[in-house]
């Protein structure tokens, strides 16, 4: 089965409506897609990722009041779980992610519409 789906329910369930995951921003669907794709191609077991996510959700719950728990930042935690797992699996070091993130953050406005180098790079 190529389009295998992975269980995200109970405490690891993403925000959903009418059976579909609610992505509030494009990055949320990208990070979700990356985590699943890496698992589909055998870079880790889905349960390994899930265990990281459970940990991050538990940590967040301990640090926040019951009131705030109703709208916890699911995909922020998801992003952190993926970062940790990639680091622990020596796939991408956290430091590498940090420096690339800083580099991207410093790009001039409108960077993704200007391609001054013919390097085949595309968004």
């Amino acid at each position: 089965m190529t389009d295998q789906l992975f269980v995200l329910d109970g405490e690891t369930a993403p925000p959903m409506a009418n059976g579909e995951i609610i992505f509030e921003a494009p990055w949320q669907s990208r990070v979700f897609g990356m985590a699943q794709s890496l698992s589909q191609t055998g870079h880790y077991q889905w349960d390994e990722f899930r265990a990281y996510l459970i940990e991050d959700i538990k940590d967040w719950e301990q640090q926040n009041s019951a009131e705030e728990r109703g709208h916890y930042p699911y995909f922020d935690l998801f992003l952190e779980s993926l970062t940790r797992l990639l680091n622990d699996k020596s796939m991408v070091a956290r430091a590498e992610i940090q420096s690339r993130t800083s580099a991207f953050a410093e790009r001039p406005h409108g960077h993704d519409h200007v391609h001054d180098q013919g390097d085949g790079h595309s968004h």
Partner: peptide
Amino acid sequence: QSIRTEAIESLLIEKDLLTADAVDAVI
């Protein structure tokens, strides 16, 4: 978060661990 996600994706693609098409397919 959006910048960090983009950074991770670019690194994974450079390391041949991921393709943007595969991510699109999952979504």
